[in-house]
Write a protein that binds this DNA or RNA. Structure first.
Lengths: 240, 240
DNA sequence: ATGTTTCCTTAGTGACTCTAAATAATCTAG
DNA sequence: CTAGATTATTTAGAGTCACTAAGGAAACAT
């Protein structure tokens, strides 16, 4: 068997990327419904069933494309996070959040595709590339929150004030992330995550068009809230 | 021409409802992808193209079904709102919010369909039945907020502290709702709306499965936050 | 040079959306 | 009560989709 750098393997990788790019272009230009096996194959110059030598079917193709989007989004956030290594954790967190929205607004079709996948639950198998990429994406803000918690702990609610069932779930989640955050801190993290993610979700799904035409200041207001919740200084958008 | 209660018209309405029910059953039992023109027609006992005499195509059928879901959701919220006419506005608002989540969790497929429609943006024409039903849905909490604002004004941010572009949009929205809320109050309303809607969005799209298995206490925590923001007394879930 | 693996094509199946034409049922007018 | 218009529904068919199967051609290994 040839090594991983064999000529064939290289060609195969190139074709995979070409397929990936074609699918993305199709998505951006004509919407998610246009991303069909046949259409993608046509774009890369091969006809129909040839694509089945690269992906087992439509779902797997969709999953691979989605994973790529997640990776790109995570990379953008990681880059923003690491752009100024010496800066306070809070600033780097705000930068990562803004990078998330920047990617989302620069690539609305891709961001929408991530959530409202034409086929929502199928590729949610915990071993899929999509799942791994999604984990990496979720990890970015979690890591920053952990760092913040270690260096400059934020205020947390009294665990006794939380409902018992919520406390149990938080304890389980705290264990799932290796105890890097205690349950109360995990609650704060998840609350922030929900607000951030939910807002972008709604923006991208156009659920707020009835009230807002430009979501940027709304997003900044949300960031201000989150900064307050995390006890960190809110510094306005970089170019404002 | 016959009156609106002609026999034919009645038959047609009955068929429309039958189509509607068949589509919904298909959605619930086999997922959104199963809601095809052919499958729906088969279920109502007619074959294929006959359905085109009731809907111009797949998109219109989807839109009609979605509008029905919106109406049902709005009705459930209105019923909760009006269940205890003498109760404080705050209690009735919490009841309406809980009714929203109750409907969403009782009909996850339908609620998910509302957002991640197989065909997202096309039937977003401002004159469609879907759009009107969505407006009615949005109106429920808006009405309650207006009532609250008139009877027991909630704290609002200083307009001078808001970014100019946000202020402009809020002014426009305030005008769009007939000035029933001033821009600052509209901002509070929209913030609450975004948090509520965003949370349910994420729950239904299973974006929080990585941390929570039971979202009910999370939702109640959110309600508690919103109650605080609106300056009203939080009263726990009715049956807890 | 031979055999194997990989890639890609054509052909074909069953499903889908939707159009067109023909047929059956129903209502309306004289 | 019958003739014509309207409506409901059917079958046929075009075009596309996902996917399978079978075969040819190229690249690879030995």
């Amino acid at each position: 068997m040839s090594a991983s750098t064999g000529r064939r393997e290289r060609l195969r990788q190139a074709t995979l990327e070409e397929i990936h790019a074609a699918a993305r272009k199709l998505l951006v230009e004509q919407g998610s419904a246009a991303v069909t096996v046949n259409a993608v194959a046509r774009r890369v110059g091969m006809s129909g069933p040839a694509l089945y030598h690269y992906y087992a079917g439509h779902d797997e193709l969709v999953g691979a494309v989605t994973a790529g989007f997640f990776r790109e989004l995570a990379a953008a956030m990681e880059q923003a996070r690491d752009a100024r290594p010496g800066a306070p954790t809070g600033d780097r967190m705000l930068a990562a959040c803004r990078a998330m929205r920047a990617w989302a607004t620069a690539h609305p079709a891709e961001f929408g595709w991530i959530f409202a996948s034409p086929i929502a639950p199928p590729d949610r198998r915990p071993d899929s590339a999509r799942h791994r990429a999604a984990l990496r994406f979720e990890q970015v803000l979690l890591d920053l929150t952990v760092e913040l918690w270690r260096t400059r702990p934020f205020p947390v609610p009294d665990p006794a004030g939380l409902p018992a069932s919520l406390r149990e779930q938080l304890t389980a989640y705290s264990a799932a992330i290796g105890g890097r955050l205690p349950p109360e801190a995990a609650h704060v993290f998840l609350s922030c995550w929900i607000r951030l993610y939910g807002l972008l979700c709604m923006e991208v799904l156009h659920q707020l068009d009835f009230a807002y035409t430009d979501m940027e200041p709304v997003f900044e207001e949300c960031l201000r809230d989150l900064a307050a919740a995390l006890g960190l200084a809110y510094s306005g958008p970089p170019d404002a």
